[in-house]
């Protein structure tokens, strides 16, 4: 019985409270954008687009956006008016920070997404259309003009790029990238880490495996097995020689 009393005193100390007060601020602010390339610009613009109606002037959801990159050569440079301030590791390992991965490589996003300890934000552009029944995984970004239709499920750390459309009842795995203007018809399945190239179209009910690459402008009318690259109209997998 004495134990409970002792526990109370330790945990209610002033030190513990001060820590809580500090982290209460930093856990919700700022948003760390991981990666400082061209894609990061659009992630930043998307995050900046989101305003909260709180009565009076709308308030930015993320008033404090910061940029990190492991490339030390660009530390101190400015992107969208934000100075690249340091490497990624210190943010990714701390559960009190909130980040979004602005990295184009699907494999890298998937790996960081599963190993990082920080929280990830889901960033959906104010002028995209995402139906309320859509489930979107943590860390996914949806850019301006993208449309996602009812009952679609999107994994974590995906990119639904500018003007892409994902119709009803699609299932997208983690770290999928739907490039600008690509169109997925209803009931399409896309496996983890797959990339649907710019302007490609995917016919209804098609299943695309994991780690697939669909070339720009391709028209996918047959299922595509995991690990393959498919191009053309209609899209066909490249042979190993063609891939070289």
């Amino acid at each position: 019985m004495l134990t409970s009393g002792r526990l109370s005193r330790v945990d209610l100390s002033r030190g513990a409270r001060d820590t809580a007060a500090v982290s209460a601020q930093r856990s919700l602010n700022p948003l760390y954008v991981i990666g400082a390339g061209g894609h990061a610009k659009v992630v930043i613009a998307t995050a900046q687009s989101i305003m909260l109606p709180l009565g009076g002037e709308p308030v930015a959801l993320w008033p404090d956006i910061r940029v990190r990159d492991d490339n030390t050569a660009i530390h101190g440079r400015s992107i969208m008016g934000i100075t690249v301030e340091g490497d990624n590791a210190s943010i990714l390992r701390d559960p009190h920070f909130c980040a979004v991965l602005a990295i184009g490589n699907n494999g890298v996003r998937a790996r960081i997404g599963t190993t990082a300890k920080c929280r990830f934000a889901t960033v959906i552009h104010h002028q995209s259309i995402v139906h309320s029944t859509v489930r979107i995984g943590t860390g996914t970004v949806v850019f301006a003009g993208a449309i996602v239709q009812p009952d679609t499920v999107i994994g974590a750390h995906c990119i639904i790029n500018t003007g892409a459309s994902v119709d009803h009842d699609c299932v997208l795995g983690d770290a999928v990238h739907i490039a600008p203007g690509a169109r997925l018809a209803g009931g399409v399945t896309v496996g983890a880490r797959s990339f649907i190239g710019i302007g490609a179209v995917v016919a209804p009910g098609i299943t695309i495996g994991d780690d697939v690459i669909i070339g720009a402008g391709a028209a996918v009318v047959r299922d595509i097995p995991s690990g393959t690259t498919a191009v053309g109209v209609p899209a066909r997998p490249l042979t190993p020689r063609e891939r070289l």
């Binding site: 513990a16 809580a20 007060a21 982290s23 209460a24 856990s27 919700l28 559960p95 009190h96």
Partner: peptide
């Protein structure tokens, strides 16, 4: 504890 059982604001 902020970040463990919930969030403090």
């Amino acid at each position: 504890v902020d970040g463990e059982q919930g969030l403090l604001v």
